[in-house]
Design a protein around this nucleic acid. Sequence first.
DNA 1: TATGAATGAGAATTCATTCAT
DNA 2: TATGAATGAATTCTCATTCAT
Lengths: 220, 220, 220, 220
Amino acid sequence: MTRSTTREATPAPEERLRDADRSQNTILAAARDEFAEYGLGGARMDRIAERAALNKRLIYYYFEDKETLFQAVLEQSYRDIREAEQQLNLLELAPADALRRLVEFTWAYYLEHPEFLTLLNSANLHKARHLQESRKARELNSPLIEMLAGILERGRRDGTFRGGVDPMQLYISIAGLSYFYLSNNHTLSAIFGRDLLSAKARQERLTHMCDVILGYVLRN
Amino acid sequence: MTRSTTREATPAPEERLRDADRSQNTILAAARDEFAEYGLGGARMDRIAERAALNKRLIYYYFEDKETLFQAVLEQSYRDIREAEQQLNLLELAPADALRRLVEFTWAYYLEHPEFLTLLNSANLHKARHLQESRKARELNSPLIEMLAGILERGRRDGTFRGGVDPMQLYISIAGLSYFYLSNNHTLSAIFGRDLLSAKARQERLTHMCDVILGYVLRN
Amino acid sequence: MTRSTTREATPAPEERLRDADRSQNTILAAARDEFAEYGLGGARMDRIAERAALNKRLIYYYFEDKETLFQAVLEQSYRDIREAEQQLNLLELAPADALRRLVEFTWAYYLEHPEFLTLLNSANLHKARHLQESRKARELNSPLIEMLAGILERGRRDGTFRGGVDPMQLYISIAGLSYFYLSNNHTLSAIFGRDLLSAKARQERLTHMCDVILGYVLRN
Amino acid sequence: MTRSTTREATPAPEERLRDADRSQNTILAAARDEFAEYGLGGARMDRIAERAALNKRLIYYYFEDKETLFQAVLEQSYRDIREAEQQLNLLELAPADALRRLVEFTWAYYLEHPEFLTLLNSANLHKARHLQESRKARELNSPLIEMLAGILERGRRDGTFRGGVDPMQLYISIAGLSYFYLSNNHTLSAIFGRDLLSAKARQERLTHMCDVILGYVLRN
DNA sequence: TATGAATGAGAATTCATTCAT
DNA sequence: TATGAATGAATTCTCATTCAT
């Protein structure tokens, strides 16, 4: 490579571009963490800049203001979870296994991405205003709903599932079972006087949730 | 009455107390609304004073500071829901009916007390710090858990319920099914492109939740 | 006086009120000077607080924001000049003397209140937006116009003045002759290479202006 | 042409210069508009770059900083008005006509170049600092003064004009009559409750100003 | 000559909280 | 018990300017 021979290499255009991209992504990640930890209202632009190890002014250079930044973080989070869902190959599994898999996935994703829960909370505290402004609302409709409908239909046909199950309701229920437990984990742990995030507690919760969902769906 | 003779009457002690109590409660209610609407971080002491139509300084007189006020609001909210739960006479009902009743109650309470959801969110965003400081954590352990355990036991004994159901897990699940749907209603409505709080949608959700819980618990 | 005997005198209500009033007036005066010196855009809230020797926050307590403060300053300035105009007893003078008197007054007022010129400039740079928002626009219509109309009419009747002189045009002209000279004094002094504010120059200007106005108005 | 053979053509020196000149002029025009609209304090370098459709950095390349840029704009404005004045062939006209012509010219120029008024205001708000630094102050002394002196002398000699009229004072007065009306047009329109820039109002003003100047200067 | 990225010093405004009565 | 006035420490956002290429 010629580049290694010259002293002051001029970065290729793509590389230079990537600088801007990198900064933007760094900011986005820092903001995600800050928003997750403190909520939209409690987040501090100063701290985001610090976390990103970038000049505060740069945040405003790339993202209009705090609200816009929050919206960008939110959209990124949705994109992330949708991408993760893509990896899920539920169609290859038997209906009951597919459902179990979905419960497990939801649980694991929330556990590994606690920021998602907080961001969702913040968004709803602000009446999902940021979502409405984002024309993308509908895009965010998880493809899982379709998939879930397919699974339920398959199960009903092969006689293992009961009929009349609304996929949207079920989807919300699956999410809700994990969400409430994890999002309010602090309060629940305090109230019940035990650590609800211990390995044992986590295993118990997962088992319980699978039991609930399958108990509901399985015929007989 | 002596009072009519003096120009600037000093109210009788009891009356002053009652005034004090009234002020305190007014502040508490105003604060609850404000915290519910904006979260702990977004709430403004000014607005609370405005809502209460009382001088801002008075808030500090009765409640140390914002944090303390939030804690007071939180405790009051727990007291309120516990009180509501007292009204529930589940012991008189057949196990399945009792469970259905509990699902309905939870759903209705959250619907009528949306502030409870937001307060819970705020509390957990702050890692339930306010709860831990409040020595009352354990007091807040709902008596419902015991009641629920009793119901499950009765059901198991009379053969209608499956065995091995953990009352705490079930309690959390019942709450979670309502909570997620209502707390994230804005996001969900945007994503699914329909109003999830319409009368019809509400009825459907309630039916679904009862089906899920009973489908899980009922033997056969 | 009883007050002098007690250690910690409680100020009479009026006096306490006056504290607020005094603060407000202090701020207003400080703001007037700052706006006059730097214009609306160049004025600094910090400096206004400093000039007033009051907490910056207090400015926002009494005046919404910078714009509102500017508007308040502007209104006060108009009130001041109108009040000064009230002192002018032009009706008692012969028409020509009354006109001369008006020219002299305008000149003297602008000289003594240079801030008025700058404020007027600032207001117009912002398209007099602050004036339009102030419902008072019409109130500010100087009573001088009526008075001027009367003088012109008297002069015409007694044969000393020409007819057909529009009072508004004349009013604007009288103001303009002083205004341009003083407002752009720096540029003019630089261009003409002499100090246009020296006592001699001032006298010459005043004489010239009287000559212009009377030369125009006087018949013959 | 050799140019077609090279990949990255280096423009011929003259061409580069012309580009440079063009850029500089574009910036100057953009800056003039921005300064005119917002004043020196309110002008934004960002907006100037935007208006010029050029990179902000380029402004600093050609013009040291904001102040220097303002000074350049100011000088250009003076050059422009002096150039326009050159076109005026007052010497060929009868003294009274020449004066009328001058009033008309001033009025028309201010009307067509509203930025000139604002720039003059800004310059004086800053005490004409930019002018003093510009060694050109004296150069800017309008040749009109000499011309005006000539006209007055001619008029005096032929008996139409009164004697003892100071050309500088008259020059300032002519400017002031137009300037005040136009510069404070917004305030005046608001105060008098009518549009002072309507075609009719403009005609009336012009007539009035000619009357004032000639009424003053004409003997009898 | 031209440009996108980056920055430090400020500027307006906000907010919880306290003073003084 | 109640209140209007006052404050200091943030906090968001802005702006002229410079870096690096």
